[in-house]
């Protein structure tokens, strides 16, 4: 039986995949500018390699695979630069906690590895749910909820009234709650 092959649409990459890829990159490098550069490099590499896309995996899986390689390259590069430029002073050892005052104070923002795994899983789940929603509404929701844009700015950009905006926000929140209810909202 003939297999359905995926296709690629580079002119839709920013709308469909940039936020997901950016979120993924932020999780790995935790720097907005570096994450943006990595996304640009990923798209550029993908454009160059688009003829090699066989369509066996989805466009997003393919782009994420390229992004992962870019992230590895990024860390390789900064680690090799570090080795040349830095002298590491190691005052920390297993039986000595170090004398710096900052290190002795408990960090209130301290996140355990388990918390990180759960949060990553949660952010994947939220993005998967948002992918099922109308892309325009999902973008408006993300700008309002994640980027904390003013209602007025979004209304001007998308040429909608504040009432329209709240209706969209309500629809997306309801859809998101419905999508997340089994695993996360019960």
């Amino acid at each position: 039986m003939a297999k359905n092959l995926y296709t690629i649409t580079p002119d839709r990459w920013v709308e469909t995949h940039s936020d997901y890829l950016f979120n993924f990159a932020m999780g790995k490098v935790n720097d907005r500018d570096i994450a943006k550069d990595l996304i640009s490099e990923t798209f550029l590499a993908a454009l160059k390699a688009k003829d090699n896309f066989k369509g066996e995996a989805s466009e997003r899986t393919w782009l994420v695979a390229i992004l992962k390689r870019k992230i590895i390259d990024y860390y390789r590069k900064i680690n090799s630069n570090k080795g040349k430029a830095e002298v590491k002073v190691n005052y920390f050892s297993a039986d000595n906690d170090g004398d710096w005052l900052e290190e002795r104070i408990e960090n209130p923002d301290y996140v355990t590895i388990e918390d990180n795994i759960i949060n990553n899983e949660l952010s994947e789940a939220i993005y998967a749910c948002l992918d099922k929603i109308n892309p325009r509404q999902a973008t408006i929701f993300k700008l309002k909820t994640i980027e904390n844009y003013d209602t007025e700015v979004i209304c001007n950009e998308y040429n909608i009234t504040p009432s329209n905006l709240w209706v969209i926000i309500h629809r997306v929140r309801a859809a998101l709650a419905d999508c997340l209810k089994e695993k996360w909202l019960s």
Binding site: R32, A35, I146, L180
Partner: peptide, 10 residues
């Protein structure tokens, strides 16, 4: 949950 997920977008 959304805050906890610490999501980023452009």
């Amino acid at each position: 949950l959304i805050k906890q997920a610490n999501i980023s977008c452009l």
